[in-house]
């Protein structure tokens, strides 16, 4: 399944449709397995990626994801960057609140995804869109 993916380089995947969200999940899983995350951590990072990829599609109007293996000398990890050139998030604090939604979902995407990863960074503006970077480290 992971054959054909060169994990030495960042892996890019466009997010333009439902099927692309599925592809993002599969890509993140392949990389999470490659850096030997535990089964629970694999599940967490794939779930977080699924939420964020859907946000990129639904709120950002589509975009792209880049998945990279990172190494801090002691541990390996998966870093995922979601970028869109959508309208940005006007009130970030509110958007990160459990249960807050403008899209008819459960409002758990952003806040839930943040809980499932080790590092979570977000840059957003109306001019440049939204860029979310998450990292999950092996234990």
């Amino acid at each position: 399944m992971t054959a054909g993916i060169d994990l030495g380089h960042p892996q890019a995947q466009a997010i333009r449709s439902d099927e692309d969200v599925v592809r993002v999940r599969q890509l993140v899983r392949a990389v999470a397995v490659a850096v030997k995350l535990s089964l629970v951590d694999q599940t967490k990072v794939v779930t977080a990626a699924s939420e964020l990829a859907r946000n990129t599609l639904v709120y950002g109007g589509g975009g792209a994801v880049e998945v990279t293996i990172v190494d801090n000398g002691r541990r390996k990890g998966v870093r995922i960057v979601f970028a869109d050139s959508g309208p940005g998030i006007p009130d970030l604090d509110l958007a990160l609140t459990d249960g807050y939604t403008t899209g008819g979902g459960l409002g758990l995407g952003l806040s839930g995804a943040r809980r499932l990863v080790d590092e979570f960074g977000i840059e957003t503006s109306a001019a440049t869109g939204t860029r979310i970077t998450v990292t999950k480290w092996s234990r």
């Binding site: 629970v40 694999q42 599940t43 967490k44 939420e51 758990l108 839930g112 995804a113 809980r115 499932l116």
Partner: peptide
């Protein structure tokens, strides 16, 4: 439901 899925669901807030 797999155990890892249950753990993740709860942490997600579902």
């Amino acid at each position: 439901m797999r155990p890892a899925v249950a753990i993740t669901l709860v942490e997600l807030g579902l």
